[in-house]
Nucleic acid binder design. Structure first.
Length: 702
DNA sequence: GTTATAGGTCTTTTT
DNA sequence: GACCTATAAC
């Protein structure tokens, strides 16, 4: 039976397939299990065609896992279910229907860098001072408007308020026109333009309403207005809509998520049934008790009490470190203990509020030789060489893509400098040509001989590559591009080793394309690009279970679970973050984040904070986080770091150096009023002189 | 048109 | 303390 092993509420949620259903699922209450079984039940028991089922997940990884689990229950036909993120589902729809709203199906998707570039460009063309108006802010505002489904033109009409609003409005309009001219969408457009498609073409909407008779949305508390609208449109006809969420885990208000979407579900669908999943199967009673105690401090919430049949488990360990290095050292040591007691590296996760906090932990891990993996921050796809390669591919699959063309027009160096580019752009805009077309008219642009020659050659190269695309797999085509453009040679023969390593990354990229080719034979480069553009931080990790400690932001940890969890930087100003501390809503969302973090842990939770911390190279003293006071004392064991900074050194002392790790003082001598310590380190750095006045050393007990 | 250096500026979270 | 950007020399 599909419902075997489920509790009564879970079973009810699985079996309630007709009509609207709201599942309020606390952390660790088995909602993924409920969702997968529900879909399996709809297909297996209710005999619904898989083609009629839609499931929207928060990450691609979650989609993949859900799909695998459904395949296990109902077999291969599960392949016809549409499972994906809002963004990937919309891409799929837009690829089929793009022409209806004036785009070509080979459209490209801008990554956040490209978006910023285009915003800046638009602002400069409007003669705005980038110092006076931060492009980041403008971008943020435009994104917010798109999430609220406000079109560029509506905005321009109503923007008589502040100067800033006018800047936003006109930048938005120009930016949007440029996107259109480039046959490109930004992330927000993927949702917004799909809605536009549906509202302008009722027949298309109807077709998808007929198709998606059973709709599921996970993490509903984090949907924004546009996503809400999209779901409303699709669900209108059959009203078989199942949303799953937990208002206590709403952590994306800053990117437009609107918690009232879940709070008002029963108003939107008065006939809705509601199922509450309150039994937690994941964490020990201690961890769950702590999580409940913290979240209770939020005022804006529906009362809910998670309970657990699990054992009490170990106390929560609270550690007051001296500074970030000490904190990292503690985490590293604790993990080593765990591993020595037959624990595994991959059971452990380190969670932090901001990506920048990962560095201190990383350094401690390197010293202690602990294998780790960082999710998010700078990833493979953010590397310059990868972005360059992707830009080539984007231009080749979407000839209108000006942003990408500008990126690679002179990479590798081919003597097409800024002034040449400017002339080409002016010419293109005057003649209403794309930049790529303008390249072909090199001689008419009025360029100097050398520049014209270079431009023409580049144009020919791109044309040749575009012609050769036919019939090749993505992998074959990418290797061809790497070779013909000279991109690989650029890195392969570079004098600096660092640059030569980039060639390896390009080869690594071919591994990615091979996997794509295997999964989707005969798909085009533009499909590959879309897949890559929509990967989230969680998706980007490798699939195989590696024996590595996982490091990530608290945001990225949502939906995951680990035996042992460390939350570091538990300090006022860090967590809750400085910029969220202005209003109670901000604080409450930070508290949700704290709740998410705590409930990631199955067996053991460690919380650390620093008494001093260096930010910008400036020393700063933070109070411990207010959330710490909200965890009941009797659930915790508190420790204070016993290492300390010292000035009275003697031979034989064991010390810890911030970079080189543990060592022993061999000798002390005076040199120009300063003492110099000769230290034998355990690490491969060996014996080194250290100035304790410059480098802060910590005393470590033997 | 290309490259090197110095100064100014920033760090929340992400599809 | 790191990263990008404006400026000047090649």
């Amino acid at each position: 039976m599909i419902t075997d092993g489920l509790n009564p509420e879970q079973t009810l949620a699985v079996r309630t397939t007709e009509g609207p259903l709201l599942v309020l699922a606390g952390a660790g209450s088995g909602k993924t299990s409920v969702l997968t079984r529900r879909i399996a039940y709809i297909i297996g028991e209710r005999r619904v065609d898989p083609w009629n089922v839609l499931a929207i997940t928060f990450t691609n990884k979650a989609a993949r896992e859900m799909n695998e689990r459904i395949v296990k229950l109902v077999g291969k036909k599960a392949g016809d279910i549409w499972i994906g993120t809002f963004h990937s589902i919309c891409v799929k729809i837009l690829r089929r229907e793009a022409e209806r709203i004036g785009y070509s199906p080979t459209f490209t998707i801008l990554d956040s860098d490209d978006q910023m570039t285009l915003i800046k460009q638009s602002m400069l063309d409007l003669n705005y001072d980038l110092k006076q108006y931060e492009p980041e802010l403008i971008h943020y505002k435009i994104s917010q408007m798109k999430n609220e489904l406000e079109a560029a033109d509506d905005v321009a009409a109503t923007a008589k308020r502040s100067l800033l609003d006018q800047v936003v409005a006109s930048t938005y309009r120009l930016y949007q026109r440029r996107l259109k001219d480039s046959n490109a969408f930004d992330f927000d457009d993927l949702i917004g333009k799909t809605i536009e498609l549906f509202s302008e073409h009722p027949d298309v909407l109807q077709q998808y309403q007929e198709k998606f008779r059973y709709i599921h949305v996970d993490e509903y508390q984090d949907t924004n207005r546009a996503q809400y609208q999209l779901v409303q449109l699709l669900a209108q006809r059959y009203r078989n809509i199942c949303v799953v969420g937990d208002a206590d885990q709403a952590i994306y208000r800053w990117r437009g998520a609107d918690i009232s979407n879940i709070l008002n579900f029963e108003r939107d669908y008065p006939e809705a049934q509601v199922v509450k999943l309150e039994q937690n199967y994941r964490s020990t009673e201690t961890i769950l008790h702590a999580a409940n105690a913290v979240i209770r401090h939020n005022s804006q919430r529906k009362e809910k009490n998670l309970w657990s049949g699990n054992e009490k488990g170990a106390n929560i360990q609270i550690f007051a470190a001296l500074d970030q290095e000490d904190e990292g050292f503690y985490v590293a040591q604790t993990i080593q203990n765990h591993v020595q007691n037959d624990g595994k590296y991959q059971d452990c996760a380190v969670l932090y509020r901001a990506n920048s906090q990962s560095r201190a932990i990383e350094e401690a891990f390197l010293q202690a030789a602990i294998p780790y993996r960082i999710l998010g921050g700078m990833t493979f796809y953010d590397r310059r060489e990868i972005k360059n390669l992707m830009a080539y591919l984007k231009v080749l699959s979407n000839p209108q893509d000006e942003i990408s063309l500008l990126r690679i027009i002179n990479v590798p160096k081919r003597s097409i400098g800024d002034s040449t580019v400017k002339r080409l752009l002016d010419y293109a805009h005057e003649q209403e040509l794309t930049l790529l077309q303008a390249l072909g008219h090199g001689e008419k642009v009025g360029l100097s001989g050398r520049a014209a020659q270079a431009v023409l050659e580049f144009h020919r190269l791109l044309e040749q590559l575009a012609d050769m695309q036919e019939g090749l797999t993505v992998t074959e085509f990418v290797s061809l591009v790497l070779q013909r453009t000279g991109l690989r040679d650029l890195y392969l023969h570079h004098p600096k080793e660092e640059e030569r390593n980039r060639a390896d990354n390009l080869d690594e990229f071919l591994t990615v394309t091979r996997s794509f080719d295997r999964r989707h034979p005969n798909r085009r480069v533009s499909d590959f690009l879309a897949e890559v553009s929509l990967l989230s931080d969680i998706d980007k990790g490798s699939d195989q279970e590696e024996a590595k400690v996982q490091m990530m932001t608290l945001h990225a940890s949502k939906g995951l679970e680990f035996d042992v969890v460390f939350i570091v930087g538990f300090e006022e100003g860090i967590f809750p973050h400085q910029r969220s501390m202005f209003d109670s809503e901000g604080i409450e969302e930070e508290r949700n984040l704290c709740y998410v973090g705590i409930t990631r842990a199955r067996k053991q939770l460690f919380i650390t904070y620093c008494t001093e911390r260096t930010i910008y190279g400036q020393m700063q003293i933070n109070d411990p986080s207010r959330f710490l006071l909200e965890i009941p004392e009797d659930l915790t064991d508190r420790h204070v770091s016993n290492s300390m900074y010292d000035t009275n050194w003697s031979i034989g002392d064991r010390v810890q150096h911030p970079k080189w790790g543990i060592g022993v003082i061999l000798d002390i001598r005076k040199q120009e009023e300063e003492s110099v310590l000769q230290i034998q380190f355990q690490s491969k750095i060996g014996c080194q002189d250290v100035l304790p006045g410059k480098i802060r050393l910590k005393r470590v007990d033997a």
